[in-house]
């Protein structure tokens, strides 16, 4: 469990204990990701903030549904996404094509370079594969959940994600960005 996951876990633990400071802690560690997840669905900043507000409420109400030690980030972002989808008129999620909301708006020079790399990486993918990468890497969705949402088979989603990952690895290799350790 990395530092971010630990902070998320601690925030959720405090919310479960009835500590309102847990909400602030969750805002600190996942607020930006929550807003980005909502924006990716709604494509509207104000509507996304409303969805995030609703998501915080749903987290507090449904905290007993969270099993400590599992993926807290994925659990929270799924709630955000559902809250956002509930605000869509037809409740159908369009493929996420605009990642501008995900990245920090104000970067230092180094972060700007990282952001540029990430943007280039995602831009190298087709919209469908980009969406799959978004679901896996940003929303922490499982292949099963992605397949269910996309209405495709698990094996198809698994293969498509593997191809997208291979494509991105090739991209990084060409750019000389890999450190040779490969995947785990």
């Amino acid at each position: 469990m990395n530092e971010g996951q630990q902070r998320t876990e601690e925030a959720l633990r405090r919310i479960a204990a009835g500590d309102a400071a847990g909400v602030d802690a969750l805002y600190e560690c996942l607020g930006a990701a929550m807003l980005a997840a909502a924006t990716a669905v709604l494509h509207d900043r104000f509507a996304a903030e409303d969805a995030v507000q609703e998501a915080f409420l749903r987290v507090v109400r449904g905290i007993r549904g969270y099993r400590p030690g599992t993926n807290g980030r994925a659990w929270v972002l799924r709630i955000v996404r559902n809250a956002a989808v509930d605000r869509l008129p037809d409740k159908r999620v369009a493929l996420t094509d605009d990642f501008s909301a995900l990245a920090p708006a104000e970067d230092g020079e180094e972060r700007a370079a990282d952001r540029l790399l990430a943007e280039s990486l995602l831009a190298s993918l087709s919209p469908e594969r980009r969406h799959l990468v978004y679901c896996k890497y940003f929303l922490d969705m499982t292949v099963r959940a992605i397949a269910a949402e996309a209405g495709k088979s698990k094996s198809y989603i698994h293969k498509e994600i593997a191809r997208a990952e291979e494509q991105m690895r090739n991209f990084l290799r060409e750019r000389g960005q890999t450190d040779g350790r490969g995947s785990y």
Partner: peptide, 8 residues
Amino acid sequence: PYTEGGEQ
């Protein structure tokens, strides 16, 4: 940069 999100 993307997975950590953008603006709060």
